[in-house]
Structures are given as structure tokens and as C-alpha cells.
């Protein structure tokens, strides 16, 4: 899902110019589950793919703070207020760990942020949907974080060391998020009629966009072969999506909620839950910028970044002044 919109047409061209023996040794290292670290030689395409994937993952975390942050000031209990604030804070932290991992590949955080703000980089499509009720906070924790975890656990074994280590840290924190979300849904589902309706409405709106998070079938993707070979991507989109569906449908039924899919049925032969057709035209539209909140998310991020410029400048100016003062001191203390 963090490779939504990934596009590297020149990867093949670069690969042809690299020493085949080196490439073979690199592939051998990856095949034996040895980790690639920042100072190791790596194919240019591997480096670029990782920068793009890790940075888009980071952008997703940061943009993801917005739909949930939308209910911070209205959280309906002090416990939920603290819990949601901690969760959104965690997302900022995850973004930071991921930017830090990407920086080991030779790009600065500032450059990655610039790519996001000019619309060159993508972030997960799910965050282009609005949070219209408190139940959406539960739905995001349960479904969106649930889907993210499906993707993130395999990434803990990604071939690139810094990304794998960041993912391990993130996964430890993420399980709290999903539990918190499900607990919110459970409380609503067992609550008043209005609360139960709120929960059902949230599921109705989020279910299909969450399934789209996993991306289209890999048969559609040009670049899956490389990312699989390099152990950046470990399972196919369809496999992860199916795993998520199988885990989540019983959880929804336990809440006594209905999934917005008349074709949802259990296939006893395979042991899998089958869903109706996903509307991929909606996914393409949202990815292209026509989702309900694309413009709003970018505007909010751009504004925050611009508003903070004078603060960052001041911090750097102070540091420069201090360094200058320190350098100009006479060496009387020696």
C-alpha cells in the first residue's frame, strides 16, 4: 500500500549499466536473508525504490495524523482524549522513524517533504477520506491500522536494515492502536442505539476504501517482480488483502455489524471470505487527486509547514550565533 503510485520506468536502464557480478553478489546476499545496510553497495534501482517506498510510507503517517486529529478536541471522555492524543503522536513518531530510515539512503528529510508538498510524492489513499463521527476513529484504528499491520509485519523482515528496524519499532506501537480502535467499536456497538448506528455508518463508509489500501492485484503492477526479488515486498497485494478480510470479517460479526457488501460470503472449500467486486475506478480517482479530502490534507500540511518556517529559521540562526560566539572566545580557559 505504500507503493501506491510507484513508477520507476528508468530502473531497467540503470540496471543494465551496473556490473553484473556486483548485482549477482548483492542478490545472493538478499537471497540468504542477510541485511543490506546503508554503506553497502546496492543497485541504484534498489536505492531509488526504497527511498520512494519508505518516504511515501512516512508521508502516509504524517498525513494520517489529520483525519484522526480531527476528533482530538471533541474526544468524548478524558481517557479517549489521552488515548487518541497518544495515538496521533505515535503516528508523528512513525513518520519520523521512517524519514530517518530513508535519510540513510542519501536523501534529506527536507527534500522528501518538498516532494510531498509539491504533489510529486504520494501517500496512502485512505487518508483522503473524511472522519465524520467519533466512530470513524474506532474504524480507523480497527480497519486502517489493521490493514497497515498486515503490510507492516512482513516489512519487519525487509532486506534493508534501517527500514526493517524502523518497522519493528512501529509494529510494537501499532498493535496498541488497533486494539484501541476495536475497543472503541465494541463500546459503541454495545452502547446506545445512536452509538450503534454511528459504528455501522463508519463501517459502511470505510470498508471498501480500506480494501483498496492494499492496491490493485499484482497482475496490474509492473514492478512487483523487482520488489519481491529484493525482499522489499514480501507478499502480493491480493494475498495481504485476503488475509485482512479473513481476520476482519469475524471481528465485525462479533460487533453485530453488517458489512456493506451483499456478496460477502464464506467459501467453505477454501476457508476464505469472498467479497464483491472492488470499484477500482474510485481508487484511481482518489489516487489522482479527486478524493473527498485530497486538497484539504495537502493544504493543511502546506500551511503547517509554511507556518513553521520562521521557527526553524530562528532555531538555526540561534545555533549559528552560538557557534560563532564559541569560536570567537579567547582560549583563556586552557
Amino acid at each position: 500500500m505504500y507503493t501506491q503510485g510507484l513508477n520507476s520506468p528508468d530502473a531497467a536502464a540503470t540496471a543494465r549499466s551496473e556490473d553484473p557480478a556486483r548485482l549477482a553478489r548483492f542478490q545472493g546476499k538478499v537471497d540468504t536473508e542477510d541485511k543490506v545496510e546503508p554503506n553497502d553497495w546496492m543497485p541504484e534501482a534498489y536505492r531509488r525504490t526504497l527511498i520512494r517506498q519508505i518516504s511515501q510510507h512516512a508521508h502516509s503517517e504524517v498525513i494520517g495524523m489529520q483525519p484522526e486529529g480531527n476528533w482530538l478536541t471533541r474526544a468524548p471522555s478524558l481517557r479517549r482524549k489521552a488515548g487518541l492524543l497518544a495515538k496521533v503522536q505515535d503516528e508523528a513518531g512513525h513518520g519520523l522513524y521512517l524519514y530517518a530510515a530513508a535519510e540513510t539512503l542519501g536523501i534529506s528529510r527536507e527534500e522528501m517533504v518538498e516532494q510531498l508538498l509539491v504533489g510529486q510524492a504520494k501517500y496512502s489513499s485512505i487518508f483522503n477520506y473524511p472522519t465524520l463521527s467519533w466512530a470513524d476513529i474506532g474504524a480507523i484504528g480497527w480497519l486502517v491500522d489493521g490493514a497497515a499491520i498486515m503490510n507492516q509485519i512482513p516489512l519487519c523482515r525487509c532486506s534493508f536494515g534501517p527500514y526493517a528496524r524502523a518497522m519493528i519499532r512501529i509494529c510494537k506501537e501499532e498493535s496498541f492502536h488497533q486494539r484501541q480502535g476495536y475497543e472503541i467499536m465494541l463500546t459503541l456497538a454495545k452502547g446506545t442505539a445512536a452509538q450503534k448506528q454511528m459504528a455501522q455508518d463508519a463501517l459502511n463508509r470505510f470498508w471498501w476504501p480500506v480494501l483498496m489500501m492494499f492496491g490493485p492485484s499484482d497482475k496490474e503492477s509492473l514492478h512487483s517482480a523487482d520488489t519481491m526479488k529484493w525482499k522489499i515486498k514480501r507478499f502480493s497485494n491480493d494475498d495481504l488483502r485476503q488475509k485482512f478480510i479473513d481476520a476482519t470479517v469475524p471481528q465485525g460479526h462479533y460487533l453485530e455489524l453488517t458489512f456493506p457488501d451483499p456478496h460477502l460470503s464464506f467459501d467453505a472449500a477454501s476457508g476464505h471470505w469472498r467479497t464483491g467486486e472492488i470499484d477500482w475506478s474510485e481508487f484511481k480517482r482518489v489516487l489522482a487527486g479527486d478524493g473527498p479530502c485530497n486538497r484539504q490534507r495537502m493544504h493543511t500540511r502546506k500551511t503547517a509547514h509554511a507556518d513553521g518556517a520562521w521557527v526553524r529559521e530562528a532555531a538555526l540562526a540561534y545555533a549559528a550565533k552560538r557557534a560563532k560566539r564559541a569560536n570567537s572566545l579567547p582560549h583563556a580557559a586552557e
Binding site: A82, L85, L96
Partner: peptide
Amino acid sequence: SEWSGRGPTLEEDIALSNLALDLIGQAR
């Protein structure tokens, strides 16, 4: 908590949330 997502840097966003969490904890 109103600063969440609006801090001048990611680090400071996290710091402001920490301050907020401490205070909400004291309040509780």
C-alpha cells in the same frame, strides 16, 4: 492538543503532545 499535526517540526509536534499528555494526566 490543538497543535497536533501543526507543529513547526515533527520533533516539536511530538514534544507538544507530550506536554499535553502530561497535563491531561494531571487533570485526570
